[in-house]
Design a binder for these strands. Structure first.
Lengths: 188, 188
DNA sequence: TGCGAACCGGAGGCCATCTCCGTATGTTAT
DNA sequence: ATAACATACGGAGATGGCCTCCGGTTCGCA
């Protein structure tokens, strides 16, 4: 999957700048920020942007891969220090909080758990799903979670909690409450 | 609130055509359908559209008022024939199903339960909230619902269930399941 | 029938997305 | 060092959506 030939130096420079700027702009203005504006702020023509990232989603994904991976890694830490049920709850809480804070992350997490979407399951989407699966299964094994829900259901419902919370205030003050309501239902 | 002078005949005609076409187009293409396109399909200049409906939201609201009112009225019927808890569940189910079927209704229902949004609470938003309040309070009175949730929380969470369900398949096949999970949590 | 008020239509300004291709720059071999 | 080639750049411009503005039309009333 690595390039046969390494990227040209200028290409690599631009690629990196775009990634950095995109992360900032998406976080500030949300996932619908102007791509031309991102290109401009990166000191690059729009053609260059579209060559590196064929569409908005591709750029969004590339810009937030690291955050997604961090979130996935966080699941492991929590699993070590907390009982399965609490670990799941805490992880979902951090996931939702991150989703609200970093505008633009939401649709990315959403598309990671979409069925009929683009066939290509992105790497970071897989990480998140893997992390969720481990936490969910551990919780189920311990009886802290009903057996008839799948990890992907949990992720989707967490996404739903974020949506619900956004209606309330946009700062995520209701996340914890809505999430514990949800967990109550998931407990069985 | 009624017009001092009745609308001119041509104005009324156009107004009505726009409403009809808008309902169709929003249902088909979602809330982001092209307004110019709606105007064109209604055989009207875009100026005319914007004169009657200053912005997208206004048109959306006008186009779906009847559906919203029907949904609100449905709450009363269900309350008569079912015990409170089931009535609420069933009503939420119909609400969510309608939200998915008629693309464009979702954001309308969403903004009805948004806090920091436009100050003007629309009439149909109030109807929906009233209907929800009655069902929720009846259910709480009977002990079928925990006492520390407000009607608006329930509506927001239902909106969240729709979001979750949309990630799954776009036809709402998971609504019932997700909703009963939610209700489980809301029961206390 | 004629007049004023009400209303219409669509051209056009603005902004965003995305493509295309002449030009510039990095890279490699000599 | 330099030539020569592949690679990448950039920004003009096509397309399409939003919304405004105003010359022209139509309606309704006397």
């Amino acid at each position: 999957m690595t390039q046969v030939r390494p990227m040209r130096a200028d290409a690599r420079r631009n690629y990196e700048r775009l990634l950095k700027v995109a992360a900032e702009v998406f976080a500030e203005h949300g996932e619908n920020a102007s791509l031309d504006d991102i290109a401009k702020r990166a000191g690059v023509g729009s053609g260059t942007l579209y060559r590196h990232f064929p569409n908005r989603r591709a750029l969004l994904e590339a810009a937030y891969t690291d955050r997604m991976e961090a979130l996935a890694a966080r699941a492991g830490e929590l699993a070590e220090h907390l009982p399965p049920g609490e670990a799941l709850m805490e992880w979902l809480n951090e996931l939702c909080a991150g989703t609200i804070q970093v505008r633009g992350l939401k649709s990315l997490l959403g598309s990671a758990v979409t069925d009929g979407g683009s066939a290509a399951v992105t790497a970071c989407g897989a990480s998140i799903k893997g992390a969720a699966a481990r936490l969910v299964e551990a919780a189920q094994h311990e009886g802290a979670l009903r057996a008839d829900v799948e990890p992907v259901d949990v992720l989707r419902l967490a996404h739903g909690v974020v949506s619900a919370s956004e209606l309330a205030d946009g700062q995520g003050r209701h996340i914890r409450r809505y999430l514990s309501l949800l967990m109550e239902g998931l407990r069985g």
